[in-house]
Simulated assay, not measured.
Amino acid sequence: MEVVVGLLLLLKILSAAVLLAVIGFVGVPLLLAGITVWRSKTSATKPVASSLYVGRVWHARLLPKRHAFNYPLFLFALDLEETDELFSDTLWPLSLIVNLQKEDHLKNGEGLAKDTPTTATEPSNTKVPHETANRVLRLVAEKTKNSFQPTLESHRVILITHLRYYGYCFNPVSFYYVQEKGTNKLVSVVAEVSNTPWNEMHCYVLHPDSIDNVQVKGEEEKDTKQRINYKFPKCFHVSPFMEMNYTYDWTFTNFLLHSKEIPLIARTMMKRGESEVHFTANFECFRHGMHPFTVAWQLIYYPVYCMIIQIWIHYEAFWLFVKGIVFVPHPNDAETAASRIIAAIMTPLFALKDWFDELRGKSSPTKAEMSEGSSTGDAANGKAKTS
């Protein structure tokens, strides 16, 4: 009898939890979207070009062992000159649960004016102002040694990124497209790469004059779409199952924020030499506009998307470990609370793997040996390992 009572109590608790989840992750977005639509009809809200893009992303590791997966993707393409009005007016109050926060980007103080402190003093709910666009343009000028000096008078900056959903944000990579305002031509891309679980960030400035050693090849296709290919050395540790001595080979298709005809496409590769491709990642997304109910639907369908991404990354990393991909430690031995937890979980698994390797007569390389081997590989490719 006590068991039955306990099961009934557990069922009630689970039912209450499900009800709260439905109210929180379904009812709240719909309610806020409804209020946002009502506000737009009763007040003059300015239309924006910024838009939600929905599609899919594909990852494939080709060497030394094959491993591939894909998953649905949605991103926001934001004209950074619209963000103040977009989140304070056009999407309010839906923007209470989906918004852009400036502390999620340019975390290392990139592009700050010389008289600006490198640490943010604004409260955490401060929205990203036009200053973010100016910081990106200053960063481009700095990385090109002022041979290219774009301004907001002549260029626009489009940020392709995830927003904060319910107060949480993580972006494996965000892209800033720098376009000429007169011609809409894509002239530079800033790739803002993050790693997990170290929570570090690095910006690559992709431009012919960039000090990031970028090789640029422009391609004009028959369909008039502008495509630009960038090749540059990897210098930021992202994955513990990917070495440093690689060359990135990325191709971007230019797009127009107001056009539904041109999808948002990026294709990336990691190479050794000119032809040995070890890894590819591509995404293709289509414009869905910025109607409040369209945005709310994405939040309902994927309520904690950024958290799902991080869980997915670690899930796939586990299978790389199972497949025997060599573990590459962080070059600077960086540690966070999350990395320590993961290390505690993985330590017995590494010990078990070493035991099986010994049974097969093959000992696993030590951390020192892996570092030495990786350094040797870097030297052979003429590159220094940096974080």
Rank of each mutant, 00 (worst) to 15 (best):
P240Q: 01
K222N: 15
Q226D: 06
N245I: 11
Y246Q: 09
E219H: 12
S210G: 05
H207T: 02
M244H: 08
D212W: 03
F236W: 01
D249S: 06
T247G: 09
P240T: 02
N245G: 13
Y204Q: 02
T247I: 09
F241D: 02
F241E: 00
I228P: 06
M201Q: 14
Y246C: 08
M244I: 09
P208S: 03
P240V: 04
P233G: 03
S210C: 03
N229C: 12
Y230H: 01
N245K: 14
T251R: 07
C203V: 05
E243L: 13
I211A: 12
D209L: 06
V205A: 02
Y230V: 00
I228V: 09
D249W: 04
V216F: 04
K231V: 07
T251K: 11
N213R: 13
D212G: 02
E219D: 13
E220G: 14
N213F: 11
Q215D: 11
Y248S: 10
F236Y: 00
N229F: 10
Q226A: 09
C203H: 07
F232C: 04
T224Q: 13
G218A: 14
T224R: 15
K225D: 15
F236V: 01
Q215P: 09
H202T: 04
D209E: 13
P208D: 04
S210W: 04
P240H: 05
C235H: 11
N213I: 10
K225C: 15
V216R: 07
V238T: 01
P208C: 05
C203E: 08
I228M: 06
N213H: 13
K234F: 00
Y248W: 08
F236R: 03
I211P: 09
I228F: 07
R227G: 10
S239G: 05
G218S: 15
I211F: 11
V214E: 00
Y230N: 05
N229L: 09
V216I: 06
V238M: 03
M201K: 13
S239L: 05
I228N: 09
N229S: 09
F236A: 02
L206Y: 00
W250Q: 11
N213L: 14
E220T: 15
Y246S: 08
K234D: 00
F232T: 00
D223Y: 00
V205W: 01
H202I: 03
S210T: 01
C203T: 05
V238I: 03
Y204E: 04
F236L: 03
K225T: 15
K222G: 14
V205D: 00
K234Q: 01
C235D: 13
C235P: 12
Y248N: 09
K222E: 15
W250S: 11
Y248R: 07
N245S: 12
W250R: 13
R227V: 10
E220I: 14
R227I: 10
K222Y: 15
T251D: 07
N245C: 14
Y248G: 08
F232M: 02
W250M: 10
D249F: 06
V216A: 07
V205L: 02
F236I: 04
H237S: 05
H207L: 02
R227M: 12
I211K: 11
K217Y: 13
T247K: 10
T224A: 15
K222T: 15
E220F: 15
T251M: 07
E243R: 11
M244S: 12
K231A: 07
D223K: 04
Y230F: 01
